[in-house]
Design a protein around this nucleic acid. Sequence first.
DNA 1: CATGAATGAGCGTTCATTCAT
DNA 2: AATGAATGAACGCTCATTCAT
Lengths: 209, 209, 209, 209
Amino acid sequence: MPTAATVKKGVRAAQKEARPKEIVEAALAIFARDGFAGARLEDVADRVGISKGTIYLYFENKEELFKACVRETLGSHVKETMEMAATFDGPTPDLLREIVRRISARLTQPAYRTILLLLISEGQRFPELVTFYHSEIIGPGIEGLGGVIQRGVDRGEFRETGLSKFPMMLMSPVIASVIWNHLFGGNVEIDPAEALQAHLNTMLDGLKA
Amino acid sequence: MPTAATVKKGVRAAQKEARPKEIVEAALAIFARDGFAGARLEDVADRVGISKGTIYLYFENKEELFKACVRETLGSHVKETMEMAATFDGPTPDLLREIVRRISARLTQPAYRTILLLLISEGQRFPELVTFYHSEIIGPGIEGLGGVIQRGVDRGEFRETGLSKFPMMLMSPVIASVIWNHLFGGNVEIDPAEALQAHLNTMLDGLKA
Amino acid sequence: MPTAATVKKGVRAAQKEARPKEIVEAALAIFARDGFAGARLEDVADRVGISKGTIYLYFENKEELFKACVRETLGSHVKETMEMAATFDGPTPDLLREIVRRISARLTQPAYRTILLLLISEGQRFPELVTFYHSEIIGPGIEGLGGVIQRGVDRGEFRETGLSKFPMMLMSPVIASVIWNHLFGGNVEIDPAEALQAHLNTMLDGLKA
Amino acid sequence: MPTAATVKKGVRAAQKEARPKEIVEAALAIFARDGFAGARLEDVADRVGISKGTIYLYFENKEELFKACVRETLGSHVKETMEMAATFDGPTPDLLREIVRRISARLTQPAYRTILLLLISEGQRFPELVTFYHSEIIGPGIEGLGGVIQRGVDRGEFRETGLSKFPMMLMSPVIASVIWNHLFGGNVEIDPAEALQAHLNTMLDGLKA
DNA sequence: CATGAATGAGCGTTCATTCAT
DNA sequence: AATGAATGAACGCTCATTCAT
């Protein structure tokens, strides 16, 4: 039976456990707006409603906070998608569309987009993050997409084209439109899904055996 | 034939005239490495072999120096390419290949790549640069590529596809590969020309009427 | 009787509350010695025994610190003196002596002298301070002194003289002697009180009806 | 017969001789506006229409330039006035009025006012200037005025008052009104001559035997 | 656990001064 | 004599980080 004290403690404990996530979320917003060097930890603290010092109870320093932002957001979605692909049982074009759609959906989520853009900007300064990103996301992604294209060729659905060498290029319209919207969003917004659709349509026609 | 006097004068004058370009080149390297906020003007100065104060003889402040870097590097190459396209007289696929090849060649020049990446990172903080970039490069580029695709459709060489709505997506593999190499260059380098080639081959097949 | 806790808290709180005054005092000394432009905030910090950055926890910038010095020191003494004058009930010469003595006492306090001299030096760069000074000190002072002279004339104690037009000129020997001592103090010090006495004696004789 | 060359040389020589005075005049204006520390030599150079470096052909450094400004402007007017006084042959009040009027006229000349204010602001940093000022202007002035007052007492025109001890206090309304106008000139301008007149009238009545 | 006052290293910018021309 | 490009020391201000409470 929880006493008043233990209840309080429970609230506190819950708060304490939620803190890192709160901080990471706030930090993500500030890093997105100001870049790594330009971001001020005070702005992060203000956004969470805590004091600057508190951040240091959960993260060693600014750099570690940044890394946590990236690691936390990335997750292992691609791996799961690829596992799905392995058991897929239908025409390869449909499979390809589904895979690309999934990755694209992920890439265009606000938090993920932010991370993508931050990795582009700050990647050089955080090689371990890039390595992490590569091993978690990019490597499996390439392998998976490559496998699917090969499946299409093997099943006589696709011609043999240079694309098998650069399967990640299938994602290029999504990446390009994310960047496009980030830069020129104010003027002409591109719908990444639509751009991707158009791109895929053309590509799949081009790939057709 | 220059006299001693003109030579002497020339040395001074030449040095002075060369300064801004030297500084911009050095700044470009430092900005590329450290970002705008992270860059130290002292590093720029050291790279040129001058003192920090000298930078201020040529640029009002850090921000103006950054803008100068962008403006200087961008130039008006796209416009010229598009003017070429207007007078081209042959099969549209060939024209498209040539245009994309040219833009791609430009985009993959080291200085230009740097600017591209810097615009992605810092564009939010320099809206006028983005506007400038849009009006000098992107606007004409879209218009030009769109016209060429339309030309193909008009001449019965291309089918009508969604691509006419997003002509800039033709460049997406180049942009994606530039970013790819920037991030993962250490691991798996993509040759943008080759990636582009593969992409174009597939696309043009897909576009074929 | 304060418990250990309140004492502890008190020490902190007291320290924090005392900081602005400490800084202002130190700044006053440095500004007096070096002028506004010549003063170094590091000297101010050293004088208080804090670090440069700490000043910025209490004052927005050098200019605001300077303004705070002036505002803090000026106060509203003149107004109070003038209110006293309104209820005075005796011969006007005695009243005039008392008023001038009071203002003089204030003007010759070290901090006040410093401010007076700083206003002379830097007033042009801080028009709002001058306006503040005028409205707090000078305006009421003129009005008050003028009223007292008029009182003397009305009561048949003073002749009508040009002095009614420039009542602040009654203070001129004090101002002049403050400046005199500031400049030549090392050589021949003037006792402002004595100078004022001599001046007033002569003036009051001259004013006598 | 001067050739074109010698004429040119003559012009140059004249120019060269005029330079220091030009520079001092410009410097005076800048020092008056910005104070010693705040003044920029480039502003001085711009005002003359020369380059920064040229100043150093005529003055060792900023400090010497400042000193030159003061020394050049001060001159020895007081001494001459006092010599006049020695041969004056009429009622002492008239003599006193004349002397004070002369000094006052000098003190209110723009250049001289500027110097007076600069000495007040910067005197502490330039003790030798203060000494110079004292020996050239103040010392003779005190002695002269004191002598005149004594003359009045000796001739039975003045009473013995404390003023003989502080003869420079006779000038206090002029000094005070110069400062007054410097600070509050925008609001209520005082005519130093008129203020002096009023002051003298009262004083001389008060001094009357 | 949380605070926030304090630190101090660091950077952008200025400007008196120098010196090759 | 005059220039003006270049220097470099200095200073205002910021902010990640620490630590006593």
